[in-house]
């Protein structure tokens, strides 16, 4: 554990909390892509199956449990509790175009051809692109509420901070995991356009609005 990794995890946790409280207190999931949330639930489920096989640390277990529970809680809020507010007409990204390549790639490029390991790899690949339905929704509607922008910023920062963590781990322990690194870089790059808009608009008090 190092400072970058800790900040990355906290940023991830913050993103989830922002999203849950936004939906809960506004009693609405308008502007949120349910498809991205479904992908995240698949990501955590596939990745954290090792909860029952490997013990890393109490921190590790607690975070995994929180990420798993919160992803299902988010789906519950979107699909059941506040389903009337779900903006399905703008949430039209075809997730099979992300799921199928992630499955094929995980079967082809992995560290070890075993069920748990292929699922872990699949989750890493899928996570790197899971935000696309959400970004697509923002581009389709041309705008995002500030709270949604804060959520996206915290979620995007998380993998960016992990990249620093991987640099640090390679430098201090000689440890590196190419699959995680390459996917993490792809994931962070996908947010770059959004980061630019966030800094130039949202932080200056303006709403995130895309040019028509």
């Amino acid at each position: 554990m190092n400072i970058f990794r800790l900040l990355g995890d906290l940023s991830h946790l913050l993103a989830i909390m922002i999203l849950l409280q936004k939906i809960f207190y506004s009693r609405s999931c308008a502007g949120i892509s349910a498809k991205s949330q479904v992908l995240f639930a698949i990501v955590y489920t596939a990745r954290y199956l090792d909860l029952v096989t490997v013990y890393v640390s109490l921190y590790n277990i607690s975070m995994k449990v929180v990420f798993l529970l919160s992803s299902y809680a988010t789906l519950y809020l979107i699909y059941l509790k506040f389903r009337a507010t779900y903006d399905r007409n703008h949430d039209t990204f075809r997730i099979e175009f992300l799921l199928l390549p992630a499955i094929v790639l995980a079967l082809l490029i992995n560290h070890q051809f075993s069920a748990l390991e292929v699922l872990w790899t699949f989750s890493i690949y899928l996570e790197s692109v899971a935000i696309l339905p959400q970004l697509f929704m923002v581009s389709k509607t041309g705008e995002a509420e500030s709270i949604t922008s804060h959520y996206l910023f915290a979620l995007g920062s998380y993998r960016g901070l992990y990249i620093l963590n991987w640099f640090y781990r390679y430098w201090t322990e000689g440890h590196y995991d190419l699959i995680a690194i390459v996917a993490g870089v792809v994931q962070t790059v996908l947010y770059c356009d959004f980061f630019y808009l966030y800094v130039t608009k949202v932080l200056k008090g303006k709403k995130l609005q895309l040019p028509a």
């Binding site: 995890d9 590790n60 560290h111 440890h175």
Partner: peptide, 10 residues
Amino acid sequence: VGLQTPHDEL
């Protein structure tokens, strides 16, 4: 590539 350690990251 062999798997050296369990995945200790989130």
